[in-house]
Design a protein around this nucleic acid. Structure first.
Lengths: 346, 346
DNA sequence: TTGTATGCGTTATCAT
DNA sequence: ATGATAACGCATACAA
């Protein structure tokens, strides 16, 4: 019984063992429209099992002209933002029988271009780029050339996150999330809000604020600019913003931050100042972390999680499905902290 | 100019544009021992650039009999433990010009077998399995069959974490970490210790304790069993253990936990009881998280981080390098909290 | 329904 | 040093 150079049995080996032609074996083992008589089918299946046959994907890819893989480019897989997207993308790719190739810019997103260039060797059928920021400007138009080139010869490109390229982009439902949060908090009875806005220049942050404002308006509550504090995107930033807020004189029932880390910093400073959270003042946040290190966080922090897994999966679906006219846009999930205005302001 | 079915220019197109034979073009563009005259070399390079040639990896793989990819199987990429390993593995694979295929068991590690089976289609040159627990028993010997089959026909298998299969395994340096932590704390002047041991059945946890004990012994300090508290692996578990410790009567200068989450829980309970951390009692932990959500954690928590990125990279190196006789085993990194016994017991 | 023959893009062998 | 040719493993058009 002849074999591949590395010892793997080939389709021809299966065919010979089953006493049929390679074509018949091919039709049985890999999808084909053509029918095969039951007897032969059985024989081929048994022979394949017996010799331990495994399709040679490279050979199949060459003759079919495409490789069943989707490439995912992330900034840093250790970041929960990217990890959750990767998780969803991988699950969906796997579900469809595709291989997932993981690429990383290692933080330097200008490397996207080189990665895409290198990727083309594989002829993957889809390319998903996950980003926190729109890096088009920095990378120059050569990235776009690469993307368009890829779309022309390989498959579709989908960007998860910020993008200005003329390719399909799936953005986090930040506006909806902000709006939903407003609705939920109004529903709990809150009326006096303060917002800590992080990274003003980032679209996601602004969307959250905009959505929140719209949500409040729907409930007849206004949010004047004077109640919006700019905060640096860090725990320290949250502490500073809280200091500023405290200096202005506490009057809100709840502080809503556009980032969880800022919320954590705020809570820290509030507690330092002698206020109880959420009993004296509640805090709400917005984040993408999966696990909280706090056992009791559920009690004091209301937070929204972007549906990043779903976005990753949607990106793969959209890239692979030719008729992806409507991408089912997942909704953000609200986790309500145990606080209520009654309890807060008691 | 003819092209691949998807529009990608082929090597033959480059050859024609350069006025040379495909063989010559091949020798120039893809590695070959054979030399090519400078003039031809230039022409080929220019032609390739001009037509936008990209190697067809599948075709190359078929004739070479191997695909330049390494497969990584993880439990859940959202988990920092796996994410950090993946980061290192990807970086190393990329550095070597290999593609990284990411596979996930989605928590159900008995799926490892099916994943490996499916992976074989690709003929990747290396397979890295990352695990928190040894899943051999559960998965049965069929996994081992798959692994050995893979090693026979494709490439080497390396397990990062716990394993009992007869394949190369890279374990976290937990013993060394525990020992190093002991040395560091002794160096700071600590003498009276208490240990919170999480997940007693997990090898890593025991190794940390064993290493810690050995490290203490080297400094002439003993750690009787009575000073080792069993804790459930969670924040709540840390709180419970701290309660038990407090009930027994505080006497230690520092609590050393084999898991950061347990340490966090302990700190929480200690502070609730009115003790200041690290001023009244210090706490040390052991973990693999990359970012801390606490701005001030550096001040109060001494912790050890396993070199998971390096382990991931080492796994890829070991799997790819034929002469991988000595894997450079990275050391755990100690982050020293700001506390000292002087400050602690003042 | 089954088998035969050809071609996918690349590289290695073997001439030249 | 360069070019023609066969071969890698598989799928399909076509013949039987």
């Amino acid at each position: 019984m002849s074999k591949e150079p590395n010892g793997t049995p080939r389709l021809a080996d299966v065919a010979r063992a089953a006493g049929v032609s390679p074509s018949t074996a091919s039709r049985v083992l890999n999808g084909s429209v053509r029918q095969v008589a039951d007897e032969y089918r059985e024989r081929v299946l048994a022979a394949a099992e017996q010799v331990g046959y495994t399709t040679n994907l490279a050979a199949q890819a060459m003759v079919r002209g495409r490789y069943p893989a989707v490439a995912l480019v992330v900034g840093d897989i250790r970041d929960q933002f990217f990890a959750r997207i990767a998780f969803g993308a991988m699950r969906e790719a796997s579900r469809r029988g595709y291989i997932l190739n993981l690429l990383s810019t290692d933080g330097d997103e200008s490397r996207e271009r080189d990665l895409v260039q290198d990727l083309r060797r594989q002829r993957p059928q889809a390319l998903v780029l996950a980003r926190k920021r729109d890096t088009t400007a920095k990378a120059g138009s050569r990235l776009m050339e690469q993307l368009l080139g890829f779309q022309r010869e390989s498959g579709r490109v989908v960007i998860v996150g910020e993008a200005s390229e003329p390719v399909l982009a799936i953005r986090p439902p930040d506006f909806d999330g902000g709006k939903a949060l407003a609705g939920a908090l109004l529903g709990l009875g809150y009326r006096r809000f303060v917002v800590f806005l992080a990274d003003e220049a980032v679209p996601s942050e602004r969307d959250r604020l905009d959505g929140f404002r719209v949500g409040l308006s729907a409930g007849g509550v206004a949010l004047p600019d004077s109640r919006v504090y700019r905060a640096v995107h860090s725990v320290a930033g949250g502490m500073e913003a809280a200091s500023a807020y405290l200096a202005d004189g506490p009057e809100a029932e709840i502080i809503v931050s556009t980032e969880d880390v800022v919320a954590w910093g705020a809570i820290h400073r509030l507690r330092e100042s002698g206020l109880a959270v959420p009993d004296d003042i509640a805090v709400a946040g917005y984040g993408h972390r999966m696990f909280s290190p706090f056992a009791d966080e559920a009690d004091w922090l209301t937070t929204i999680r972007s549906p990043l897994e779903e976005m990753g999966a949607a990106a793969v679906s959209a890239a692979l499905d030719p008729l992806a006219s409507d991408i089912p846009m997942p909704s953000p999930k609200i986790h309500l902290g145990g606080s209520t205005p009654d309890r807060t302001m008691r």
